[in-house]
Amino acid sequence: MDQLDYTIHQPARLQIMSALCQLSERERVDFTYLKDHLGLTDGNLGAHLATLEGRGYIAVDKEFVARRPKTFVAVTPAGRQAFAGHVAALQLLLAPK
């Protein structure tokens, strides 16, 4: 049964998860690109990503690109499942009884 997920149900984290779930399973997005895309600050995005990573909903990889550290973020299968369940639970709340 689909359940509300209160880790995801926070405005910024909803945005983050919604955005990340649009990527294919092979794709990861750059931290700075995601930050600019969502209009968040470094600290704000970093804190929300840490929360989501702690729940196993996203994977954060750090690597060097042209000798500069870059952070890439991707949603995990567990994160996709949790987000889909959360959206379904929200839709159930709106469904006529």
Binding site: Q22, L23, L90, L94
Partner: peptide
């Protein structure tokens, strides 16, 4: 719930455009 779904949809549409 309705507000959250609208936010999700807006983020989804924006990210799809970026992708």
């Amino acid at each position: 719930a309705e507000k959250a779904l609208l936010e999700i949809e807006a983020s989804r549409v924006a990210m799809r455009g970026a992708i």
